[in-house]
Design a binder for these strands. Structure first.
Lengths: 158, 158
DNA sequence: TCCATTGTTGACAAACACGATCGACAAACC
DNA sequence: GGTTTGTCGATCGTGTTTGTCAACAATGGA
C-alpha cells in the first residue's frame, strides 16, 4: 500500500516552493533542503508544472512559484498527478477504475472501498496551506513530546 | 497507493477456504471461483501457509483449511504478510520503518501517519469472519441496485 | 554583445518489483 | 503403483520506478 518516491518528492517540492511565497524557488534550493536526487527532481518539477501546480521561469533568478494560492492546492490532487489512483485497488478507484477479480467478492470490494474513502477523506481535505501552516507551527515550538494544550486553533478547512 | 495482486488473491483465497469450513479446499476450486492464475496462486497459498493462516494436506482429497477460527484472522495481518507495510510510506510504518526525506517535514510526516492510521484502523478491525458474514448476507439478498430501505438508492458510481 | 545561470526536453538505462510459469519432488489416498 | 494434490526452487518477461545525461532555450546582467 505504498506511494512512490515521486509523490513524496513532489509534495516536498511544493512545500519548499510554497515557503518562498512570491519569490522564485530554484531547484537547487529544494535539493539542498531535502536531499533528494537533483536529476530526478527535475522530472518531478516538470510534472508539477504540466499539472498546473507551479509555474516556472528560466534564466538567472529563475525558478518555480505556485501557480495558485496554497489554499487551492489539494494534496490528493498532487498525489494523483504523481502517482495515479489513491485507491488501494483500481477496482475501487473513482478516477482510474479497472476490473479485477476482487469484484467477485462484494464483501472485500466494499472493504476496499472503505479504505479508499478513508484515504481520500484525509487527502482531499488537506491543502498545501495546511501543510505550510503546520510547518510554521512546528518551527515556532521545537519538537516536544506532548502535543499542545489550549483551545485548538480551529481546524482550517477549505 | 496500491496493493499488489498477491494481496488481493490472498484475501480471496482465504475467503474461498473459509467458506469450506472444516472441509479441505483445493487450489483448483479457488482458481475456478475467482479466475486467478493457478501457478501464481500456488505461490500465494505457500505464503499463506508459511504465515500460519492456513494448513494444508497433500494427496487426493487434500487441500487447504484455516489454521484457526476465521474470527482470529485479521485482514491487516494478511495484507502485511503478502505485501509488507500497510503504511503509504515506510517512514510512517510501525512494522517496516525506514528513513525517508519525508521526515524532514513534520507536517507531511504527520499527514502521512494519519493516512496510515486510517488504513490500519479499518483493516485491523476486520476479520475474515466479518468478510464471510458479509458475503453470506449478500448472497441471501440478491444484488439489487438499491441498498436496503432508505430513500434514494444512491447512484452507484465507480 | 556575450556569458553565466537556470529551466526544458527527450532519450536513455539500471534496478527492482510484480505477475507468472515450469519442472522436479513429496505425501496421501485408492 | 498410480493418481491426485501440495511443495519447493528457480527462472523470467515485463513494466514501473528511480535516476542520469546531453543538448537546448530563455533570462538577466556585465
Amino acid at each position: 500500500m505504498r506511494t512512490t518516491a515521486a509523490s513524496e518528492y513532489g509534495c516536498l517540492a511544493l512545500l519548499a516552493i510554497g515557503e518562498r511565497g512570491e519569490g522564485w524557488c530554484k531547484r537547487q534550493e529544494i535539493i539542498d533542503r531535502f536531499a533528494v536526487p537533483g536529476a530526478f527532481l527535475e522530472q518531478i518539477l516538470r510534472k508539477l508544472t504540466a499539472a498546473g501546480f507551479v509555474v516556472s521561469r528560466r534564466g538567472a533568478e529563475g525558478g518555480f512559484r505556485l501557480a495558485r494560492p496554497a489554499a487551492e492546492i489539494v494534496i490528493a490532487d498532487v498525489m494523483r498527478a504523481m502517482d495515479g489512483p489513491l485507491a488501494p485497488s483500481r477496482s475501487v478507484s473513482e478516477n482510474f477504475y479497472q476490473p479485477s477479480p476482487l469484484e467477485a467478492s462484494p464483501a472485500y470490494h466494499q472493504l476496499f472501498r472503505k479504505v479508499r474513502d478513508a484515504i481520500a477523506a484525509i487527502l482531499e481535505q488537506t491543502t498545501l496551506e495546511d501543510i505550510l501552516d503546520a510547518e510554521r507551527d512546528h518551527h515556532r515550538k521545537p519538537p516536544r513530546a506532548g502535543r499542545r494544550a489550549g483551545p485548538r486553533p480551529a481546524p482550517r478547512r477549505r
